[in-house]
């Protein structure tokens, strides 16, 4: 197992964000997490990433996870290549090597030719690819991605999703991926974890039977539609509860 989480809980003051979550992720596996807004997905991920301490429970991660954040995180004062090389620079990788590795990674995420641009000169999708490349170049054993394509339109998401699949096959990374999009989850994952409304617990884990390799044309497959419906069935009730909870507050 690359990642084991046991009976994890997190409470912020009087807000119980995550309750008793247990999860194990195998090497090379792609696991998606879906759940209503505010159910504690980002919190779970930040605990796994070691950014916040859990209130209770145990986590066992191999190596230092790489994280792609929900919000834009490319440094505006660094060019694309400098952004991507950042982590390597910080861990003391020599200049020549880190630039080579950064350039390769930039090529891999499809940003070739933009190495010397600043983030403000790129589109939102391109900036997010910079953040992804900055994480991937560290070759982490496990990558945590928090709605990395959340701010993008549906088409761009699917295309970037395909690219992510391709990159993952090339690097054989383990991914824990948060998303609101069933299409994205079904296109990318081996397993999909459905969470309940806050306090977030695991409602069900759906194993994705769709054969690999997949590409974005799979969305028109009838089996895809059936699975999507199944996920919605599971989530509908939770989302309504989450909304009712918001109103009640």
């Amino acid at each position: 197992m690359v990642l084991t989480v046991e009976h994890l809980s997190k409470t912020f003051g009087d807000v119980e964000a995550v309750r008793d979550v247990s999860l194990a992720v195998d090497e090379g596996e792609f696991v998606s997490i879906v759940g209503p807004s505010g159910c504690g997905k980002s919190t779970l991920m930040e605990i796994v990433g070691g950014l916040i301490e859990p209130t209770a429970g145990r986590i066992d991660v191999s190596g230092m996870p790489g994280i792609v954040f929900q919000q834009e995180s490319a440094f505006p004062w660094r060019t694309v290549v400098e952004n991507v090389a950042f982590g390597l620079e910080m861990t003391g990788v020599g200049k020549a090597e880190r630039l080579t590795r950064a350039r390769d990674m930039i090529e891999l995420v499809g940003l070739g030719g933009f190495e010397d641009r600043y983030p403000t000169e790129l589109s939102g999708g391109m900036r997010q690819r910079v953040a992804i490349a900055r994480t991937l170049v560290m070759e982490p054993k496990i990558i945590l991605m928090d709605e990395p394509f959340g701010a993008l339109d549906e088409q761009t998401r699917l295309i970037l999703g395909e690219e992510l699949s391709r990159i993952r096959e090339a690097t054989n990374a383990t991914v824990l991926f948060i998303t609101h999009s069933f299409d994205e989850a079904l296109l990318l994952s081996d397993r999909i974890v459905v969470m309940t409304a806050r306090p977030g617990t695991i409602k069900q884990v759906v194993v994705n039977p769709l054969p690999r390799p997949r590409d974005s044309t799979i969305v028109s497959d009838p089996e895809f539609g059936r699975l999507s419906g199944e996920l919605w069935e599971l989530l509908r009730e939770e989302s309504m509860r989450a909304l009712a909870g918001e109103r009640g507050r």
């Binding site: 954040f69 919000q71 834009e72 995180s73």
Partner: peptide, 17 residues
């Protein structure tokens, strides 16, 4: 930007870094 600080923490940067 708090996300930038989170990036720094996710890479386990020292205070000086």
């Amino acid at each position: 930007n708090v996300v930038h600080l989170k990036v720094a923490r996710s890479l386990r940067l020292s205070r000086t870094q």
